[in-house]
């Protein structure tokens, strides 16, 4: 990566205020998921226009769009809340996740829109108390920042091409 490109996408290329709002969004997002609060997860997305995808890096690199989760409109993001809270209620074993994030890149796309890349590791703990890695990867986001930050689109790209269990909750 050239010095020019690096400086254009470094976290410090955007204002501290924007960074703070994005950091709050990321923290709220993982706090919601790690407490199985799907409505809190939903609140992280721009209600006018948003999308969420979760797919393997293997698919992503080959331009294959199939994902574990493919919510290409806000209605589908709302439906995912219903899958977990209503449709699947009582049919799966609970598992506790812990998301760990590290922002790596951020850049203004003009007006109040920003792109951001954030590495993640997600651990999960089953009923027996055993903790393992669920997935490692990178969020590729577009974020609207105007007093409060919301996800316009989030793509969770999993380096983990073979996940160790079925996934109830988004990443």
């Amino acid at each position: 990566m050239s010095d020019q490109v690096r400086s254009d996408t470094r976290l410090s290329s955007v204002s501290r205020d924007v960074r703070d709002q994005i950091a709050d969004l990321q923290a709220d997002y993982i706090a919601a998921l790690d407490s199985q609060d799907m409505k809190g997860w939903l609140a992280s997305f721009d209600e006018n226009n948003s999308s969420y995808f979760c797919r393997s890096k293997e698919n992503e690199d080959e331009g294959l769009e199939v994902g574990y989760m493919f919510d290409d409109c806000h209605e589908r993001i709302c439906d995912r809340v219903k899958f977990v809270d209503e449709i699947w209620a009582g049919t799966f074993e609970e598992y506790q996740t812990r998301h760990f994030l590290q922002p790596t890149r951020c850049k203004s796309l003009g007006e109040d829109l920003y792109s951001a890349q954030t590495n993640f590791t997600v651990m999960y703990t089953d009923d027996a108390g055993i903790t393992k890695v669920l997935a490692s990867g990178c969020y590729d986001d577009e974020i609207v920042v105007n007093g409060v930050a919301r996800l316009r689109s989030r793509k969770a790209v999993l380096d983990t091409n073979v996940v160790p269990r079925y996934m109830v909750y988004p990443i």
């Binding site: 797919r55 393997s56 293997e58 698919n59 080959e62 294959l64 769009e65 199939v66 994902g67 574990y68 091409n161 073979v162 996940v163 160790p164 269990r165 079925y166």
Partner: peptide, 11 residues
């Protein structure tokens, strides 16, 4: 034609 994969290792 392939659309893509979901891969899981079930215990």
């Amino acid at each position: 034609r392939l659309l893509g994969y979901q891969k899981v290792n079930y215990a």
